[in-house]
Amino acid sequence: MAVEPRTSWTKYDRKTKILRMLGVLVAAVVAVLAWRALHVRYTFVANAARNLRDLLGRMYPPNPSYAVEIVPPLVETMNIAILGTGLAIFLSLPIAYLGAENTTPNAITYAIGKFLIVGTRSVNVIIWALFFIIIFGTGALAGVLAVAFRSIGFVSKLLAEGIEEIDPGQVAAIRAVGGSPFDVVVYGIVPQVKPTFVSVATYRWDINVREATIIGFVGAGGIGASLDASIDFFQWSNVLTILIAMLGVVLVSEGVSAYLRGKTR
């Protein structure tokens, strides 16, 4: 029986082809609907490029004399990031304990732990800042608390995972030599979780430096307030100075954070 020579080949069969085309179509419709929902005024779009060029022209060159003035707010930004991270770690320890499957006392505490982790993580730092400003007034204190609360979910989730992954054999060894529960913690557990703690702390601090640059928009301290003020007063060269400073601070902390994480093995 002769086999008919096969002269056509397609990557997908008919059904897959139609499904794929339908998928593309749906995606296109969603994109168009989304665009229409924005009610964009096209004159704005048309002028955007020119406006941006104008703006950059007014910004350039940056104002070096203003660079000296923004040192205090930059330092405050750093302070907010450091204290916020420190406070977050402090608050995260018990929550990590509750949110870790192997250490949590019971199902209810586990649920509470998970709720706190998810809840704090889902509320943006700027929203936390708005709440803390109502409570403590404007200033860096609200900023520190906002950064701290925003970080709790991230920090305690990773800390809990670090605790869950320890090798029970090392704990058993310390118990076997007759070590006290304290010895078990200091020799059996701490050396194992230390790298996780250090890397989580420095990593989150790195993120928090970025977060701390913006909470000033709503009055929670840091360099963001200077940016807001400079824009309000149309001091464009100052705006560029601030943007460059932000860039520098964030890149430097990213480098420091990467260096520290590389050091802990």
């Binding site: 913006i214 928009f217 963001g224 705006v239 943007l243 932000m246 964030v250």
Partner: peptide, 11 residues
Amino acid sequence: RSLHELVLAIV
């Protein structure tokens, strides 16, 4: 990466 979304938004 370095500029926060809100900084970009304000500009």
